[in-house]
Amino acid sequence: MNNSAVLQHDGGRPGRRKKLRNIHQLPPFWNMLAHLAIGLFSFSCVYPFLFVIVISLTDETTLAKNGYSIFPEKWSLDAYAYVFKPAISCFAPMA
């Protein structure tokens, strides 16, 4: 988008090289704030998805004891085994 960046001239003094700033962009402080705001919102959009995936991989007794947590004590694949079990037993007669 900002291909033709306009750079500030540093005066050309020898031995003094200031970092050139693109004056089309936001000032650094506001840029950092914008990154924080949008980054937080974007993370909050993705986080529940990851959270529910972690919950689905949590052990049953840990859930009853500690509730939903992003870092469970014990991981387990029981929920997926339970979900896919009827499907497997459906295919068994064909085997």
Partner: peptide, 24 residues
């Protein structure tokens, strides 16, 4: 949000943020 995304300096990060916001 559209104005902020447009003004963010790092365009690659802005695209990542936008993809994340799309998900819901």
């Amino acid at each position: 949000v559209a104005i902020l995304i447009h003004e963010i300096a790092n365009k690659k990060l802005a695209k990542i943020y936008q993809t994340g916001m799309f998900l819901p």
